[in-house]
């Protein structure tokens, strides 16, 4: 009788120690699901999802406050990846938040018009504009996410959207253009 009690007690103690140790040793900092969601999001920090940036949106999705279809820059690809990760049904993009752009864009500043007002620099969420007061402002294309947040503040309308030529890293299948399909030749 005593042996049985003792054996069980020792087994319980050993398991307890192992569990306690693992809890400390393999402790996960932060919320891994937020990191995973954040890594799927396009990091444009454009705020079209109504959250301040991609990370806050990721947190909102993780908490169940936001839906997965609020990210226009990510578009269908992002929604499908999020649905996969979270085990929910993919759904079409919520048009309230905007529409997916057909190709990646960046902005460019018309140097002949820029007055160096810094308003676009303050608006840029990713520090992609180099410039200072009364000095030329220049968009650093490799940093620009195409969020277009700098365009409305410009007092002289000198910021223009340009399409980025597709490289092997950015190219994607073009969706078939059903609406604009050529009419059938009449016989």
């Amino acid at each position: 009788m005593l042996t049985v009690v003792l054996t069980l007690a020792i087994i319980a103690a050993v398991f307890g120690l192992v569990l306690g140790y693992s809890a400390i040793r393999f402790k996960v900092e932060g919320d891994p699901i937020v990191d995973q969601i954040d890594s799927i999001l396009p990091q444009t920090q454009c705020g079209q999802c109504t959250y301040a940036g991609c990370r806050p949106y990721a947190e909102a999705i993780a908490n169940g406050e936001a839906d997965i279809n609020q990210c226009p820059p990510g578009g269908e690809t992002t929604i499908i990846a999020l649905a996969d990760l979270l085990g929910v049904e993919a759904k079409p993009l919520n048009a309230e938040h905007g529409v997916e752009k057909p190709s990646k864009t960046v902005v460019r500043i018309d140097e002949n018009v820029c007055i160096g007002c810094t308003l676009c620099i303050q608006a840029c969420p990713v520090d992609a504009i180099l410039g200072a007061a009364k000095r030329m402002h220049t968009v650093i294309e490799s940093e620009c996410t195409g969020c277009d947040l700098c365009i409305p503040p410009c007092p002289v309308d000198c910021i223009h959207v340009i399409e980025v030529e597709a490289t092997l890293n950015t190219w994607k299948w073009q969706a078939p253009e059903v609406e604009h399909a050529a009419p059938r030749p009449s016989r």
Binding site: E111, N112, C114, I115, L130, G131, K134, V156
Partner: peptide, 17 residues
């Protein structure tokens, strides 16, 4: 820090205004 080297403006702000 990001050190930035600036270029002068081409346009005259007063003129553009």
């Amino acid at each position: 820090d990001r050190v930035e080297i600036y270029r002068p403006l081409i346009a005259d702000p007063k003129e553009v205004r």
